[in-house]
Simulated scan of single mutants.
Amino acid sequence: MDYSDVLAAASRIDGLVLRTPVLEVSPGLFFKLELLQHSGSFKVRGAFNRMLSAGELPSSGVIAASGGNHGLAVAYAARVLGVRAEIFVPEVTSPVKVAGLEALGAHITQTGAIYSEAAEAAAKRAAESGALAVHAYDQAEVVAGQGTTGLEIVEQTGGVDTVVVAVGGGGFASGITLGTSAPTPSPSSDPTPTPSLSPTPGSVAAPGSVAAPGSVATRGSGPRIIAVEPERIPTLHEALRAGHPVPVEVGGVAADALGATKIGTIAFEILSSPRVESVLVTDEAIVEARRTLWARHRVAAEPAGATAYAALLAGAYTPAPGERVAVVLCGSNTDPSTLTP
């Protein structure tokens, strides 16, 4: 996969997804408000691209497994395209997301304790029904669709040094890595690129440590990507340590949206780039970031949607003076009553 796949996806889904706004909340700090997207998250981009790339959809429709947001996106896209959607979700899925699926007319099966168990059930059902499977993160069309967010970030900000994004299965972060990969001049005033402090692919910051400020790798290939995960679901972090995707335990406040047990194969290949650095944040930092987004900016984010911002607030990533940073706020499917203590 490469940048051209994302450009093709952008053309394919044009008019079906929102060009979500970017806000400069302080000098050089931008929020990409992907939580205002149809269905409440970026996921609809990949869902539409996968479905439209398939040609004529089967009479049995489409099927997906999801912690919630992907299911909502597939259900939304299926309704727009006039096909049946069958969605498998685990028991950990929030009531808000289940209610959203019902409102969209999806046929829902809630099974398994975590996403991977729901995914197994969905795969079995797809083989029986012949429905088109729309994977939450490990399909090329899905990754390319998510990457259209990256195209918009570059266009709307005029270019940034760093993009901070949450990681679950890795489809969104890998798509954004591709979507921001067109060669562009540095937006910073210093014409000399800052060398990467990590010569090995896929830099990993140890838990409790912080990413080095201002070290932008492979400038000609796009901005640095700070891939943020909860400490309790470190799929990319552990994969980079091991040199290949490995299963991890799933838990914590963002498990319903970031609860993949293993990083996707496509995502691991893309996120092993020297442009990418993996950092971890605590559940407490995610909760605080969510509350701060509401108190300071009146942005209502779910825990996964606030995870990228948590990296800045908690100091897991500290931008250098003058560094231009885009933080992607990726999901809003939450109960508003939980936004304050």
Rank of each mutant, 00 (worst) to 15 (best):
T292H: 14
G259D: 14
G208H: 06
L36Q: 15
S332H: 05
P95H: 03
P223W: 12
L33F: 13
D283Q: 10
E24C: 07
V279K: 08
G67R: 05
L29E: 10
P336L: 09
V83H: 11
P195N: 11
A113Y: 03
V142M: 11
A113P: 01
H244E: 15
Q110F: 00
C330F: 00
F31M: 05
C330K: 03
L36S: 12
L271I: 08
R275C: 07
V83I: 04
G55D: 15
T149G: 09
I286L: 07
A289S: 11
G222E: 10
G105E: 07
L313H: 04
A320F: 13
G222H: 05
R241K: 15
P207F: 11
P95T: 00
K124M: 04
P341L: 03
G264Y: 06
F30A: 01
N69H: 11
P58K: 03
R12C: 06
S26L: 06
D283R: 10
S332F: 01
P58F: 09
A119Y: 10
V22M: 12
R275A: 06
A65Q: 14
A314W: 00
E56Y: 05
E128P: 04
A140M: 07
A77M: 09
L151G: 10
E91W: 07
A212W: 07
A126S: 07
G40S: 09
H135K: 07
G145Y: 12
V74Q: 10
L33T: 02
A311L: 06
I225K: 01
V74H: 06
P199M: 04
V276Q: 02
Q139D: 15
T340G: 03
L57N: 13
V165W: 00
V167R: 01
T318M: 13
V98F: 01
G214Q: 05
P245G: 11
A75S: 15
F30T: 02
A10R: 15
A326L: 04
L7T: 14
L313G: 08
A64L: 06
G214K: 10
A285L: 08
V160Q: 06
V279R: 14
A212C: 02
T177Y: 06
V287Q: 11
R241H: 02
G68Q: 11
H70V: 04
D190V: 04
P21S: 08
T282I: 03
N69V: 09
A121L: 13
T184S: 15
P58W: 05
V250C: 08
V89I: 15
A311P: 01
P234Q: 03
S174F: 01
I87V: 15
Y137G: 05
A47D: 01
L23E: 11
H107C: 00
L236V: 02
P90V: 04
L339V: 04
I63G: 12
A133V: 13
P201L: 00
F88T: 03
L33V: 03
R324C: 01
S203K: 08
P223R: 00
T192D: 12
K124D: 10
G175E: 06
I266N: 01
V160E: 04
A47M: 08
A239P: 02
L313Y: 10
A182E: 14
K32P: 03
D2F: 12
Q146K: 09
A131F: 09
D256N: 13
